[in-house]
């Protein structure tokens, strides 16, 4: 297998795109388009400097001002201790504590990964409901062509921004695993393909948490939850037969054949 030398003295992001598009030809799954997010340490420090955790209490709302530091933490441009130190210096009160708690999830996932090794890529526990998941991600999901405006918007954002808000990740994972009965591993693989912060520890374990193979019960949502945390972004104009527009009790019965509450 031949090797190719890469140029490291490239002056602009456009020059990097052009160079990599040529040198990595055949080795990437999308068009040769850069993310808006610059991967350099200098850019990472700029993002960290700009982050104050102000408004972090609203982090579950998808228009909230979240840190967007996860990709830099994933790839090492920022270390978890320097991000924590920044938060302790620049944030206060409940927002400071909540941010540090969220940061601890990353540490937790890495400890699980260290403990379980490659087992992290298999079900860590049996699912908590009787289910037979299909192995492959259906094309209509991969193509953002399900006909559900919210789901298709999550796919569009994933593929074009290489980012999804955490709540969108959970909704999408619940849709894929519970509503469409697709194995979480296929969904995780789709996330790893596109998310700048795609990794095994945080992403595979989050999918397992939703699927109930790393939690006591499956995570799922209904339309009311999506409308609330999205500011009614899709629901206000949606005219399709919504699979989420049901009470939690009904959805539990339909999806899992049992109740967990």
């Amino acid at each position: 297998m031949h090797s190719v030398e890469l140029e490291t003295n490239l002056a602009t992001r456009e020059a990097i795109t052009e160079h990599l598009a040529q040198m990595l030809e055949g080795l990437y799954s999308t068009d040769a388009m850069a993310s808006e997010t610059d991967g350099s340490r200098e850019a990472a420090l700029g993002e960290l400097e700009a982050f104050s955790a102000r408004g972090y209490g609203r982090r579950n709302f998808i228009d909230a001002d979240t840190s967007r530091l996860s990709a830099y933490l994933r790839h090492g441009q920022l270390s978890i201790t320097e991000v924590a130190a920044h938060a302790k210096q620049h944030a206060t009160g409940r927002e400071r504590d909540e941010f540090l708690k969220q940061l601890s999830w990353r540490e937790f996932f890495y400890l699980v990964m260290e403990q379980e090794g490659t087992g992290t890529l298999q079900n860590l526990e049996p699912p908590k409901y009787a289910v037979r998941w299909q192995a492959e991600l259906p094309d209509d999901i991969r193509d953002g062509d399900t006909g559900l405006p919210c789901v298709d918007a999550w796919v569009e954002r994933l593929v074009t921004d290489n980012y999804l808000h955490n709540h969108e990740r959970l909704w999408f994972a619940a849709y894929v695993t519970h509503f469409r009965r697709v194995d979480w591993k296929a969904g995780w693989d789709f996330f790893r393909e596109h998310l700048l912060d795609g990794d095994i520890a945080s992403n595979a374990l989050s999918w397992q948490w939703v699927a109930s193979t790393f939690s006591n019960k499956p995570y799922f949502m209904n339309q009311e939850n999506i409308a609330k945390y999205s500011g009614n972004r899709w629901c206000a104009t949606c005219r399709v037969a919504c699979p989420f527009r049901k009470s939690y009790e009904t959805l539990e019965r339909e999806l899992f054949g049992t109740t967990f509450s």
Partner: peptide, 27 residues
């Protein structure tokens, strides 16, 4: 960039550029 890994796994170009920008900044 590990060629066998990239041949076996679907990875978006944007991810590869993001990583490479990190790498050249570190080097």
């Amino acid at each position: 960039f590990d060629r066998p890994f990239l041949q076996e796994n679907r990875i978006a170009f944007a991810r590869l550029q993001f990583m490479y920008e990190g790498a050249i900044s570190a080097l």
